[in-house]
Design a protein around this nucleic acid. Sequence first.
DNA 1: CGGGCTGTTGAGGAGCGTCAACCCGTGTGG
DNA 2: CCACACGGGTTGACGCTCCTCAACAGCCCG
Lengths: 512, 512
Amino acid sequence: MLIKAVSNYSTIETEAILHRNSLFAMLAQESTGELARAARRVDFHKGETVYQVGQIAEALFIVVAGLLKRTSVSYAGQERVLDLIVPGQVFGDTELFAERPYSADCSAVGSSVLLCIAGDALRRVVAREPAVSARLIARLAGRQLEIEAELVDHQSKSGNERVIQFLLSESGGIAAASGETEIRLPASKQLIASRIGVTPETFSRALRDLADAGLIVVNGRSVYLQNAQLALHRRTAGEAGLPGSGSSSQSYRHGQVRGQVPAKIISHGVGRKPGRIISPLAIINIAGRQRMLLQRMAKSWLMLGRGVLPRRAQVMLRQSIALFERQSLVLGDCAGSDEAYEAWCQTKDLWQPYKGLLENVPRESDARRLFSSNEAVLMAADRMTSAYVSPESKHGQLVNLAGRQRMLSQRMAKFYLFQQWGIPANICLRELTATRREFSLALSRLCAAAVDQPRLQAQLDAVTRQWNILQRNLDAASGPDLNANSVRVAASSERLVQQLDAAVSLFEDLAA
Amino acid sequence: MLIKAVSNYSTIETEAILHRNSLFAMLAQESTGELARAARRVDFHKGETVYQVGQIAEALFIVVAGLLKRTSVSYAGQERVLDLIVPGQVFGDTELFAERPYSADCSAVGSSVLLCIAGDALRRVVAREPAVSARLIARLAGRQLEIEAELVDHQSKSGNERVIQFLLSESGGIAAASGETEIRLPASKQLIASRIGVTPETFSRALRDLADAGLIVVNGRSVYLQNAQLALHRRTAGEAGLPGSGSSSQSYRHGQVRGQVPAKIISHGVGRKPGRIISPLAIINIAGRQRMLLQRMAKSWLMLGRGVLPRRAQVMLRQSIALFERQSLVLGDCAGSDEAYEAWCQTKDLWQPYKGLLENVPRESDARRLFSSNEAVLMAADRMTSAYVSPESKHGQLVNLAGRQRMLSQRMAKFYLFQQWGIPANICLRELTATRREFSLALSRLCAAAVDQPRLQAQLDAVTRQWNILQRNLDAASGPDLNANSVRVAASSERLVQQLDAAVSLFEDLAA
DNA sequence: CGGGCTGTTGAGGAGCGTCAACCCGTGTGG
DNA sequence: CCACACGGGTTGACGCTCCTCAACAGCCCG
């Protein structure tokens, strides 16, 4: 391998590269010199192989520039990327010190420059310098834990979750709770997919799902992480564990331990544990969310019927129903007053026929019946939510108001879709206009209540942005391609409800 | 953790334990003493935890007796076994030297005795003794490669393959090419399943599939590896790679690199690579196998129709068809003479209608048509095989004869099943008797040809054993439970054909 | 301008996990 | 002593996830 034409580095340059690396940072001059003498620069063109399975490891590599991949080829000829290696990283140490032949191939993804250090010299230095040997031990042990974590993740997490995790680790560890973080994928999506352990198709679909859910925005190789959504997502879905002892999730590279990553997109999870104590505000949040779900179900049903993002709609509908019923149980347990309990019962009674309609394959002939059934159960759920709000609680009313906005967002999308399917345009338009006015009014009231709350303000700004987008899409009803606009309305209303849910949580936290 | 009532070892005993371990085998007396002073014995009852996620690692553990598991609990509360730790093994080093909190839980599966060495003392010794530090580095690096291999295996191999691999690694690395190797599972099947990364149900089914395929025999926690079958299996299914550079497959514990493990049970694989050079004897083997597959398809179809091992039958039928068609392509490319080519075309023509019948759901009314279609295409395939045998090749004729036995074995089972389903008993009985006589005669000729070939003789002995079993089952036609005997005939004929396939390969190798 | 490469989308299917029922051997308490 | 529960193991039914295959759109490059 080392038999290649090279334009070598000077000793000075080599030593500088060595010192820049944490493994050799604090090395005696003598040893640095020895390593530098045993090192040489090697250039690799795109696609060239650095080593192959079965070869004997005789050198350590430091990436000076470029990008490399370690891959393993399975019996069927499928190649799996084990590692993407970026400048500054060291590799080859494992096989060198394990004294085993390479079990993977390594090649350059793009033109790359490596510094190769002869194994014998390295072994001498390691044997002589306890500091280096200690660093090496720590490095090997740490890497072992990372790979092990990856192994565990790989079978306990779904593809979508692993994609999220990869993106977060790629962002260097998300910090901000709002705003967006841009990351650029370090390689083609195919390579990344293989690195994560899925097919390119699955990776593509995962990115689409996450984008539909409003967690990210994808533009070519740039991915914009929507921090508020992601934080919410992490919080809501990872509730099962004991606080403070969540299972560690390793990042894909030089990563720290982060919070958990959830099972399902948009599962505003409700802890399953019986007898959990839930704060009054949390109850309002949950009750209010039921209204939203009822609207979202109708929206999903209509999307399915009209072939708008059918894959996504199917999932949304199923998850909405499941979440609604789970939450309903919780609410039944938590009814604090007779009034609340009665409202809960009424909602429950109206829910059954509504659910029945939802489960039929969407047909235009059912649209009217769904319309009225939906309105009926929605009214009941709205009354129920109010019944859970104690009249004297200022915070409670705010949470209710904010929570109601979620419902309105879905309701607008619902009317938009109904208008195209069996319900007279004038009715829909009238309701749509009224709902829009109500939403805008309430939003300004919420903003007013959020002054002097910077995080809340930031979140409401995000809401406003999404709201403007949705409004544009609603206005564009007469565009050339009706269906494309339905997709936009569906997606943006979905993103809006996500932002709103985050906002409601913040209002809920306000009391604490 | 170390705050436990213990009956400690004497210093002498402790030092003996240390010295027995390869990490500390060649350690200066002084250091041994230091470690021994820092060590203490701790006993754990069944189920007791040694450490938990999140705790700080402060000791190294050596297992003196018992069995422990390292497990990781996923967000959903599912526990995955990362490692089963047996006496003599060292653990805890990784977390100790990575200086990270434990990312897994560790507990005793059965009552266990550990020697715990305080981390500080160990770190001092490692810093002072380059020999220990070198061993540790090699150990960590080696383990890292093993885990990485496991990661790769986990997504490139199916559950069944991983089970095979685990069993092989558990046997300490299969050596014998014939006979059987007994292994005892070190823990409950649930734990093993989790260790391999599948559910208990899947593990159970995998063992059953492997047993049905004749690769193993399971009896409680004892598993008997059928070495001949396994060797064959490995050889036939792992053919895709370049010879001598197959991708490494790590064992699950203290394991060496072994040969590849195949994709499918019973895929007497044919390399897909175009332009591969195939020896004349190999061609005869393949052509002869086509006959067998035709009979096996009928057998599977009848099994399906009669509900005999339906799950297994389904797989057999599908795989047989797929293999037949793959092999047919190879044969078409390799037709050496006009005669062979013509025979190939005829077979191909008769194959289509036969395949059509097979793809229908098995019904008794179709049995007759299948019967005759099967006989027709079988005759063609038999002529075709003969056409591939050059008349002057003694070896070629032997391979043909041996290969034909495979077909006969399936043919007998076929007649047995037909007899119960729509075809007059007297026809079936006549054919069955004739086939049995032919099989016995040919077998003795093969045995005669195998004198002075010990491996071949051993294999033919195995064949004879299976043959006797099959004969017993065929005779037991009048037993109380007809269906149970069909199961036995189906299974034992399956095992017989496996043994025969191994024998044919040996005949094929004879020329080399 | 055609051809290759990357990425996306849809349809269909294989594999495996989940749920539920059941069997069996073992321990436990009346 | 039996009744019973319990945990390990097996089996069947069913569905979800992800892979496979195929078609296609956009893009760069010769």
